[in-house]
Amino acid sequence: MTKVDIVSGFLGAGKTTFIKQLLSDVYQGEKIVLIENEFGEIGIDRGFLKDAGVEITEMNSGCICCTLVGDFSTALRKVVDEYHPDRILIEPSGVGKLSDVAKAVRDVEKHCGVCLNGQITVADGKKVKIYMKNFGEFYNNQIEHASVIVLSRTQSMTEEKLKEAVAMIREKNPDASVITTPWDKLDGEVIRKALEHRSVADQLLEEEEHHCCHHHEEGHDHGHHHDEHCSCGHHHEEHHHHGEECGCGHHHHEGHHHADEVFTSWGTETVEKYEKAELENWLEEMADENKYGTVLRAKGIVEGTDGQWLEFDLVPGEYEIRNARPDYTGKVCVIGTDLKTDEIKGFLRV
């Protein structure tokens, strides 16, 4: 039986970095296949995963949940039949709903020889408050349905801010393991235990339950079936029942949106060369001003005027530029709401 782990996370939370660490420290020696469901036209992250010897099935999507459910059974069966992996990692789009992805896996478990193992959400600790407020429908879904929540960028947070972020997460999901230590300080075994949700307390409780023959019916299964009954005890009706009328002709429940109704993704390939300083100014403007719309994530790799390739990454309020190996062409992808694509094209000269 092939284990399936879903590694979700809102735009720019650090999913890709965390997956790198899982591959090198936690799952080394296992045969892994990664399935990406990228929201956007350009798959920027493919390079390093290919370098790691990981096979990729990339399902670029218009309507994320429809694509997942539509192609999902076929994609999973093909992966299992062709590669016989020990584990499949699914990296949904940053604006995909974890509940939809988990449901898609459960719907095909019996037919595809897989079992859903972990539902992991990577969350930027510094952005928990603002994202819960502004993008609750998508962001909270990833928090609520996780069995493990990995907080990123905690090393640059005060203890007070970290406690506040954890408290907000606990309100939405009291059952998940929450990793607050910067993950580059943790060894693989500690991360593995956290991902398997096997804390000492869990083990003691399990032993206690085993000794007293009292069987609970509430479904305390550490978050693995949150789409049916989450910790608040409500039965959730927010899931699409795809397959009957898919192709985005299906009935949308009130208050339940597809990612492509809320977020815009714009991407391009470019042969243009850019000064590092002008790239910095552009990212500065995107990080702090509204000149280009509400930019939630920008990433890309372009050639500098001095011949050095530059890779950049942006989330609201911060960005990073680093030197990179040459790619076959320049690529840029911007995701946000109310994007001013003409202004973006104007800067990029495309």
Results as ranks from 00 to 15, higher is better:
Val7Pro: 06
Lys15Phe: 13
Thr17Ile: 14
Val26Asn: 11
Gly29Asn: 10
Lys31Tyr: 11
Phe39Gln: 05
Gly40Thr: 04
Ile42Phe: 13
Gly43His: 00
Ile44Gln: 00
Asp45Met: 01
Phe48Asn: 06
Asp51Cys: 08
Cys66Glu: 09
Val69Arg: 10
Gly70Leu: 03
Ser73Asp: 04
Val79Lys: 00
Ser93Met: 00
Ser93Asp: 01
Gly94Ile: 00
Val95Thr: 02
Ser99Thr: 06
Ala102Arg: 14
Lys103Gln: 11
Gly118Leu: 01
Val122Trp: 14
Gly125Ile: 01
Met132Thr: 03
Phe135Pro: 04
Asn140Met: 11
Ile143Glu: 06
His145Ala: 02
Ser147Val: 07
Leu151His: 06
Glu159Trp: 02
Ala167Thr: 04
Ala167Glu: 01
Glu171Asp: 10
Lys172Cys: 09
Asn173Val: 00
Ser177His: 12
Thr181Ile: 11
Asp184Leu: 08
Lys185Ile: 00
Asp187Pro: 11
His197Phe: 10
Val200Met: 09
Asp202Leu: 04
Leu204Asn: 09
Glu207His: 13
Glu208Trp: 14
Glu208Ile: 14
Glu209Phe: 12
Cys213Arg: 07
His215Met: 09
His216Glu: 15
Gly223Cys: 04
His225Lys: 04
Cys230His: 14
His234Gly: 15
His236Ala: 15
His240Asp: 10
His241Tyr: 11
Glu244Cys: 03
Gly249Glu: 11
Gly249Arg: 12
Gly249His: 12
His251Gly: 08
His251Asp: 08
Glu261Ala: 05
Phe263Gly: 08
Ser265Met: 01
Trp266Val: 03
Thr268Phe: 03
Glu272Trp: 09
Glu272Asp: 07
Tyr274Lys: 05
Leu279Asn: 03
Glu280Ala: 06
Ala287Trp: 05
Glu289Phe: 09
Thr294Gly: 15
Val295Cys: 13
Leu296Glu: 15
Arg297Gly: 00
Ala298Trp: 00
Ile301Ser: 09
Gly304Lys: 00
Thr305Asn: 05
Gly307Phe: 10
Asn323Glu: 11
Asp327Ser: 15
Gly330Tyr: 05
Val334Phe: 11
Thr337Gln: 15
Asp338Met: 14
Asp342Leu: 13
Phe347Val: 00
Phe347Glu: 00
Leu348Thr: 06
Val350Gln: 05
